[in-house]
């Protein structure tokens, strides 16, 4: 895919920085990460799409408690190569994020996932959901998944990631070192910016994408300049409405 090819069906011009970032994000998804191959990461991406029509996810979403409904997920063909616990993670994060709980998280970890793969899978899932939401916002179908890139996972785990305030280890601001020394460059290091730091490349990629689709950190609190065609107030209004609909307390 080249940049103009990403949205050949776009009804209006798309900002070049959004196009460039989304192309980079798709390449990121399709490439080997720290703990998964490119093919496995694309299988995670495919599962975010399969989750939207999964009968079990629909039944759980409608139930008073998701724990009240048993069964197996309807997974994509590529999902067959993923462990069941990972499919559960991707489907629940996609379809019922507000009711994720510490006990649910502990359960999927007890089923054989480790924190590193959990965080990387969450990173791939939120990238994919965001890219697909953008396409939907233009009235377009999800983009075709790219081809998997060759290569093996790096197995890289930052030494400075520690269990602290979240369900997963984080690199707290002030504790960055080594390859992560500039991890929060230009950002405050809020918890949301720490959330993916156990797999630093997921954090870097996600916030690079956010900088184009939303705003860069330096633009968020600069009210003297409107960097977009809608105002800061309108931007935060959309952000707030999406988060309220998703019942996100953060």
């Amino acid at each position: 895919m080249t940049t103009p090819d990403l949205y050949p069906d776009a009804p209006v011009p798309i900002r070049p920085d959004i196009l460039a970032e989304q192309m980079r994000a798709w390449r990121h998804i399709a490439s080997a990460g720290s703990w998964f191959t490119g093919a496995e990461r694309l299988a995670v991406a495919a599962e975010t799409r399969a989750a939207r029509t999964c009968a079990l996810c629909a039944s759980r979403k409608a139930a008073l408690s998701p724990n009240a409904v048993d069964g197996g997920h309807d997974h994509s063909p590529s999902g067959a190569k993923l462990p069941a616990a990972l499919i559960e993670v991707v489907h629940r994060v996609t379809t019922d994020p507000a009711r994720l709980s510490k006990s649910w998280h502990d359960g999927v970890m007890a089923d054989g996932l480790d924190a590193e793969r959990y965080v990387e899978a969450v990173g791939v899932a939120v990238h994919t959901i965001s890219l697909d939401t953008f396409a939907a916002g233009l009235g377009l179908p999800p983009r075709p998944l790219p081809a998997a890139q060759p290569g093996a996972p790096s197995g890289y785990r930052p030494k400075s990631a520690k269990m602290a305030a979240a369900w997963v280890p984080l690199i707290s601001p002030g504790n960055e070192d080594g390859a992560e020394i500039n991890l929060y460059g230009g950002m405050m290091g809020a918890y949301i910016q720490q959330a993916l730091t156990l797999v630093p490349d997921e954090q870097r990629s996600w916030f690079s994408l956010c900088g184009a689709q939303y705003m860069a950190g330096s633009q968020m609190r600069d009210f003297s300049t409107e960097p977009r065609a809608i105002t800061h107030a309108q931007i935060e209004f959309v952000a707030g409405r999406i988060s309220a609909l998703n019942e996100c307390r953060y």
């Binding site: 965001s130 939401t133 949301i192 996100c248």
Partner: peptide, 21 residues
């Protein structure tokens, strides 16, 4: 287009916050 970008971002960010506790 800008509104689509914002919506896309927060549809991901919300899930990131919820999934990592």
């Amino acid at each position: 287009v800008d509104a689509a970008g914002v919506a896309a971002t927060f549809n991901g960010i919300d899930r990131l916050a919820d999934a990592t506790g």
